[in-house]
Amino acid sequence: MEPSKRISQRALTLWRIYGVIYTSVTLLLTIGGIILVILFDWPWWLIAIAAAILVLETVFLIWLIPSIRWKRWRYEVTEQDIELQHGLFIITRTLVPMVRVQHVDTEQGPLLRKFKLSTISISTAATVHEIPALDEEEAEHLRQSISSFARVAEEDV
């Protein structure tokens, strides 16, 4: 019953890179903090706290969250409907009938482009649904098929 398709394996690498970027910002702040502690003789436990945050961030942002997120992400597109499933602690399953689809967009930032990935967003009259980090070609193919399915399916809004 669950949607069957997974998003690109490269998404995992990409999300880990995002994690590394966030963590390196914290790292820079921590280094700055250490210098301040040494210069102004602030208490040492400040460094301990900063280090703990750094370790937690490394574990969560680079390792745990991307892999859980990737494992959970599923989608399936048929002629009748689009089904998505994702989430970390709360798993959300979404069903969008094809007749409700108004338009489909694909979007690609610089990092996504480097990894040949692309994000697809599906809009109904009231809601927007996103599938992040799909393979470039897969996204292109999906966009075309969704828009042609949506055109065939007819019903009044």
């Binding site: 709360i90 959300t92 399953r93 979404t94 069903l95 409700r100 009231a126 009044d156």
Partner: peptide
């Protein structure tokens, strides 16, 4: 035929 989309949410505890 008026519903735009439907969501089911489930947290780890609810599962």
């Amino acid at each position: 035929y008026r519903i735009q989309s439907t969501y089911l949410n489930q947290s780890v505890l609810q599962r």
